[in-house]
């Protein structure tokens, strides 16, 4: 399925886009991130530790953090609104 993903901060810089469309094989947040990293390899060091999503990566599924839902194995479906943002530390 095709999904649109919104990106913030250095995720956006790495993909050079505020929003990207990816073809996702599978139906979990993990699969969305795999598809993203495949299309935008510069995201890999920011988002992945081997095959695992780095714990600091915040994923919003339809406006809510997946941390409060099923984590990175949360199910996604066509039309879902997904946003990825890193915590930022600047002051």
């Amino acid at each position: 399925m095709k999904l649109k993903v919104k990106l913030f901060a250095n995720f956006r810089e790495a993909a050079k886009n505020k929003e990207v469309e990816v073809s996702v094989k599978g139906n979990t947040v993990n699969d969305v991130v795999s598809a993203l990293v495949h299309d935008y390899p510069k995201l890999e060091p920011l988002m992945l530790n081997g095959k695992e999503i780095k714990p600091y990566v915040n994923v919003l599924l339809n406006g809510k953090s997946v941390r409060d839902q099923g984590g990175f194995t949360s199910k996604v479906k066509e039309g879902d609104d997904i946003a990825l943002f890193p915590p930022v530390s600047g002051g």
Binding site: A9, N10, P87, G90, G91
Partner: peptide, 27 residues
């Protein structure tokens, strides 16, 4: 906190709201 052209803001009231570590468990 800030980064580039972005920023984040939240107000934490102990006992009532999530704390900073609830929101950002990983640096």
């Amino acid at each position: 906190s800030v980064w580039g052209l972005e920023g984040r803001l939240t107000t934490i009231i102990p006992g009532k709201t999530p704390c900073f570590e609830c929101i950002f468990p990983n640096a």
